[in-house]
């Protein structure tokens, strides 16, 4: 391969005057994490509500949950981001649209909310499956003791359901981190975006992508380890979950 490797490039100053190329990548990583965390909070909150709706006896609630999931699951994430970023401001009343367009950090907010809503559909499906996997008698026992529906979910069903779906939720969180990279298309300069700009400025393609790759792998490893600890922390003595 006649490619001129130059690993020292990371310690050379970047043309933006924000320190070295390495600083540039690290700031990208920070933005990736910030976006992913906000998106994950949204995904968990919205996804939990929608997931619960899909398990209620009410027909209307079920249908709302069904439509929510289908809407966000059947469109590419990229198209969804375009809808929120380019289309939504035009569909709103003029003043509101203008305000949206002039919002500072618009790519960040769009990415966090867009990825968050996209992931909320997947969280909802996981939670629905988790609640569905509990024995029917658990809900009955809660009801028979006089707990209301809300109390039954709060104290009996959800604590078990979330424990059961913790492993799949871990991979959904990892997906959230990865999915923030799609926001490069609406101008969010996160980790992949910074690697791309480093490549454009320095022509050191493979160094840039290698570094980004390593940073993603590290992030993954940290998340997986943290979640293992969490799983152990909330594990119930004597209770064997699925696998």
């Amino acid at each position: 391969m006649n490619y001129n490797w130059n690993w020292k490039i990371f310690f050379e100053p970047n043309p933006m005057g924000t320190g070295t190329y390495l600083d540039m990548l690290l700031s990208g990583l920070a933005l990736t994490i910030k976006t992913a965390l906000l998106a994950w909070v949204i995904a968990l909150a919205v996804g939990s509500i929608v997931g619960v709706l899909r398990t209620l006896p009410s027909r209307g609630a079920y249908w709302f949950g069904f439509c929510w999931v289908e809407f966000f699951r059947n469109m590419p994430l990229l198209v969804q981001l375009f809808l929120w970023f380019f289309v939504l401001p035009e569909m709103l009343p003029r003043a509101a649209g203008l305000w949206l367009k002039q919002l500072p950090n618009a790519p960040f907010w769009t990415a966090a909310i867009g990825v968050g809503l996209f992931m909320s559909a997947r969280v909802a499906v996981q939670l629905q499956a988790g609640i569905g996997s509990l024995p029917r008698g658990q809900r009955m026992a809660a009801t028979a003791l006089g707990l209301t529906t809300v109390q039954g979910y709060r104290y009996v069903l959800l604590p078990m359901a979330f424990r059961i779906i913790l492993p799949p939720l871990t991979s959904e969180f990892l997906n959230t981190i990865k999915n923030t990279a799609v926001a490069i298309t609406i101008g969010l300069i996160e980790l992949t975006g910074q690697a791309r700009s480093m490549q454009e400025f320095s022509f050191q393609v493979f160094e840039a992508f290698t570094a980004a790759t390593i940073l993603y792998l590290l992030t993954n490893a940290i998340v997986v380890t943290a979640m293992r600890f969490l799983e152990r922390y909330v594990a119930i003595p004597g209770y064997i979950t699925g696998k």
């Binding site: 799609v182 393609v205 792998l217 993954n220």
Partner: peptide
């Protein structure tokens, strides 16, 4: 594990730049 840890966008960039060199090799 490696592939599943990376964002698809990054993988697309990787191969876009890498494939010409692999072809050359």
């Amino acid at each position: 594990d490696f592939m599943r840890s990376l964002p698809l966008v990054l993988v697309i960039f990787w191969f876009y730049f890498l494939v010409p060199y692999i072809g050359q090799w």
